[in-house]
Amino acid sequence: MYWALYGDQEETEVFKEMAKVEEDWKKITSEKEVQRRRKMMRIFSLCFVVGLVFGVISTMLFSSVLPINQSDWNLAPAIIFFVIMAIGLVGRSFTRSYYYSKSKDVLKLMLAKENNWLYSSEKNVPQQQTLEKELPELFGKGNTSNKYIEDQFFGEIQIGKNKIPFNLGNFYYEVRSGHGKNQSTKSYYKNFFAFRPNNKLNAHFLVSPERLLHKIGNMLTKKDVDLESMEFNKKFVFSYKDEKNKALIPRIFTPTLQLNFLELEKKRNNFQSLITNGAIVFMFDGFLLSFLKTNILKENKISEADTAQLKNKIDELVVIIKEITKSFD
């Protein structure tokens, strides 16, 4: 069993998923598939170019830009050519998007295998529901039922003599606003990183970016905790339920941890951190991995820059874990 945020992860099903991703990748990178893919892309490119060129010419003929009798032409050929162009365009986009998504899955799978972790790309709604119930501060977002956790890693990180279990993944939710015709739905992706420190904490508080409303609220209630760093106090605000947690905050947030949070804020901007009994969770905006350089359509392998990007993002978080676990020792 691997540790997961609120509930352990059984590995059998995940191993099957990982094996499937690996199998898909072997097929995608096989010589036969590479040839087929290149042929398909050539066809789509040809459709696009032919459709565009002849579509434009047909349109010009119809609109009698060229010196030919207009009644000899109608718009049908132009429409057909533009449809061919659209097929080429959509086909290319869909193919790129499909292989981009596969590349992301394989990159994560490779990292997981290298470190003896589990990786699951599947959407997990029950886990999201549990997390929403247990950690509403972070997972109680969105006002539609379309929410889930996906793209998860489960594993352990070595910190000194200790092995610290962690779970990271993407959290998707939607926010619906307006009524009737003016209704709109906006989608959000966040990525979370949770780990279980060795020493059990008897704490529960949230660290969030400080906004104007927090500043005004604090002027009235004086609830925020001020630590040594002025820069930290300006950028972050603490939310807690009782005085016991308030007293724990200066003990946990040592000068080194304050500086680490400030460093992380420069790299990752808006993030929240929940320190709770049994786990410490970070929630960041966007995907864990963005804008891959890997282009399977050009080169049949994962780009080293992408591997480095993923490793760096995880290493940044490992530095924070080291500091937090020191505070709790």
């Binding site: 040594e228 760093s229 002025m230 820069e231 930290f232 040592t254 000068p255 080194t256 304050q258 500086l259």
Partner: peptide, 9 residues
């Protein structure tokens, strides 16, 4: 770290 924070302040 505390020295850095103090000097920044």
């Amino acid at each position: 770290a505390a020295r850095r924070i103090y000097n920044n302040n």
